[in-house]
Write a protein that binds this DNA or RNA. Structure first.
Lengths: 145, 145
DNA sequence: AAAGTTGAAACAGAAATGTTTACAACTTTA
DNA sequence: TAAAGTTGTAAACATTTCTGTTTCAACTTT
C-alpha cells in the first residue's frame, strides 16, 4: 500500500514552476520531461492543483504559474488537492463484520477514534511543512552540486 | 488509496481471540464468520500474526491463542505484522525523474526527510495504542448495549 | 481410521491505478 | 485569418493490487 505518486509528482511540478517560471514556459510537456511522467497525467495533476487554487493554467497559452506564495502552500494542501485519501479515511475497514457477534458489531466503533488519531498525526505533520521549505532545500542541494 | 483492510481484520481477530478464548475453539472458520472475511484470508492473517509472535496456532488442533499480553501488543505491531506498508515507505515516489534537470535530480533528496517524518508521526501514534485499550473499549461498548 | 483443522499454492475476479490515444477548445504569433 | 502550440477531457487499454475461491497435503484429536 502506498500513497499515490501523484503526490510527489505534484510537489515536483510546483518546485519546477517556482524555479523555472520566468526563464521559460513551464508547459505540461516540459514538466513531463522533468518528472518522467506522461504529459496527460501532468495535466491531470495540474488540473487538481488548479481546482485547489494552488496554480493557474489556461487553455491555449502554455505555462503554469503559482497562484499563491510558496510559504502559503503546505504539503497537506497538495495531499488534499491530489486526493491521496478519500472520505473513507486512510484505513480501510472490512465491510461485513457479523452483526450477530458482539465483537463484529462493535469493533468498528471501538477502533474508529484511534484510527482517526493516527491519520490526523500524519496530516498534521504534512500541515507543518510548506513548499517554501522543500524548494529552499532543493535550491540548496542544487547550489552545492 | 487505503491501508489494507487486513489491518482492521487483524485487530478484530485478536479481539475475538481475547474475548472468546476459553469459551470455545476460536478457529479460522469461526473468525471468518465474525469478520465476514473468507476463512483462507483469515488463515493468512493469522499466519502473519504468528510470524510476528503475536498469536499461536497449530495445524490439526483448531483454535488460536494470544502469545502475548494484550498490553504488550500495539497497533503498530499489528500494522507491521500484516505488512501495511513495504520497505519503500508509505509515500510512493515517481520512478523516473529526469537526471538532466536540476529539480528532477534533487527533488527526491529534498523531500525524503519530510515524508519520513510524516510516516513516523503516523506510526508513533499507532505505537502509543495497545490492544488492551481497544479491547477494553470494545468490552465497554458491549456491556452498555 | 475418521473428522476437523491449519498451511500453502495456484488460479480467478474485481477494483484501483496508470498509460496512451485522440480530439475539441483556446491563445498566440506570424 | 491561418498555423502552430497548448490545455482540458474523455475513452480505451494495460497494469497492478487486493480479495476470494478452490484444492490438497500435513497435522491433531477422538
Amino acid at each position: 500500500m502506498q500513497i499515490t505518486s501523484k503526490f510527489t509528482v505534484a510537489v515536483h511540478i510546483l518546485a519546477c514552476i517556482d524555479i523555472f517560471d520566468g526563464q521559460m514556459r513551464v508547459t505540461s510537456d516540459f514538466l513531463s520531461g522533468s518528472t518522467g511522467v506522461n504529459a496527460v497525467i501532468v495535466r491531470g495533476v495540474l488540473g487538481q492543483l488548479r481546482n485547489a487554487g494552488i496554480v493557474e493554467t489556461r487553455q491555449g497559452s502554455g505555462g503554469a504559474h503559482l497562484a499563491k506564495a510558496l510559504d502559503e502552500i503546505t504539503l497537506y494542501d497538495i495531499y488534499k488537492a491530489v486526493d491521496c485519501v478519500d472520505d473513507e479515511g486512510l484505513f480501510h475497514f472490512h465491510e461485513n463484520p457479523n452483526a450477530d457477534c458482539p465483537v463484529g458489531r462493535n469493533i468498528h466503533k471501538a477502533m474508529d477514534g484511534r484510527l482517526e488519531a493516527a491519520q490526523a498525526a500524519l496530516e498534521n505533520e504534512l500541515k507543518s511543512t510548506t513548499l517554501a521549505q522543500v524548494v529552499a532545500d532543493t535550491r540548496k542541494i542544487i547550489d552545492e552540486e
